[in-house]
Simulated scan of single mutants.
Amino acid sequence: MTGNAPNQRPVISLGLSPVLVAVDIAAAIALLLAVLPIVKFWAVLPDRIPIHFGLGGLPDAWADKVTIWMMPTVGAIIFAVLTAVSRYPHTFNYPVPITSENARRQYLLGRGLLVWLKAEICWLLAFVVRQQILVTLGNVQRFSVELVLGIIVLMFATVGVYLLKAYLDR
């Protein structure tokens, strides 16, 4: 990627837009929705649960049920790290050189990208937990690989929209 060194960029104080606040709240809700079904169904989950699913959505690897906490834990770490990092947009790598004229626009775009990706990742992880529980309890026959792929495509689209906007706002 191109751009000047982060230590040569202007440091600008940015507020959060109401949209980004709402997206942040949505990410936090996703984390909560990843934890609640685990707590609700913990007593009825068997000792071994599926932890990996093949392309057809059928489980092909199993582990102790405590591993179901991995997804919400990873989600919480991602949430915390991306929240902290998003406060320092002058340190990001950008696809265009940062100048005093475009810094504010680029920083807002960069922060927006992190906030949206954070929410999408948290929702993906919440969905994975839900699917793990549904398959484990026999409520569905297979993991919905299509929905996971759809969310991943959405994440790539989010990055693509960001790159287009960053290039147009250079």
Rank of each mutant, 00 (worst) to 15 (best):
R104K: 15
V81G: 07
P97Q: 09
V81W: 02
N93C: 05
T99W: 03
Q106R: 09
R105Q: 14
F92W: 05
L82M: 14
N102M: 11
T91A: 14
V96E: 13
F92R: 02
A103S: 10
N93A: 08
R87H: 14
R104Y: 01
P89W: 08
H90N: 14
F79T: 05
V81E: 09
T91C: 00
R105T: 11
S86H: 04
P97S: 13
P89Y: 09
T83M: 10
V81D: 08
S86I: 03
N102V: 05
L82E: 08
Q106H: 03
V81S: 11
R104I: 04
V96D: 04
Y94K: 04
T99G: 02
N93H: 08
V85N: 02
A103Q: 04
V96R: 08
I78F: 12
H90I: 00
A80S: 15
P97C: 05
F92G: 00
I78Y: 00
Q106V: 00
T99H: 01
L82G: 00
F79M: 15
P95V: 09
Y88N: 10
Y88T: 12
I78K: 07
A103V: 01
T83L: 10
V81K: 05
A103W: 05
P95H: 07
S100Q: 12
T91Y: 07
I78R: 01
Q106I: 08
Y107Q: 10
T83A: 11
V85A: 12
R87F: 08
V85Y: 02
N93S: 12
P89A: 09
T83H: 07
S86C: 04
N102Y: 10
F92I: 03
A103K: 00
E101I: 03
F92V: 04
R105H: 09
V85G: 01
F79Y: 12
V96P: 06
V96K: 12
I98W: 01
Y107F: 15
R104L: 11
F79N: 09
R104T: 14
Y94E: 00
E101K: 13
H90A: 14
A84G: 11
T83P: 00
P97F: 03
E101W: 01
P97N: 11
N102T: 07
T91P: 02
V85I: 15
P89T: 08
F92K: 04
A84Q: 08
Q106P: 10
P95C: 12
I98K: 03
Y88F: 15
I78S: 12
Q106N: 11
A103E: 01
P95S: 13
S86T: 07
T83R: 11
N93Y: 09
T99F: 08
Y94Q: 01
T99D: 03
N102F: 08
R87K: 14
P95R: 00
R104V: 10
H90D: 12
F79I: 08
T99S: 15
T99A: 02
P89D: 06
I98Q: 08
V96S: 05
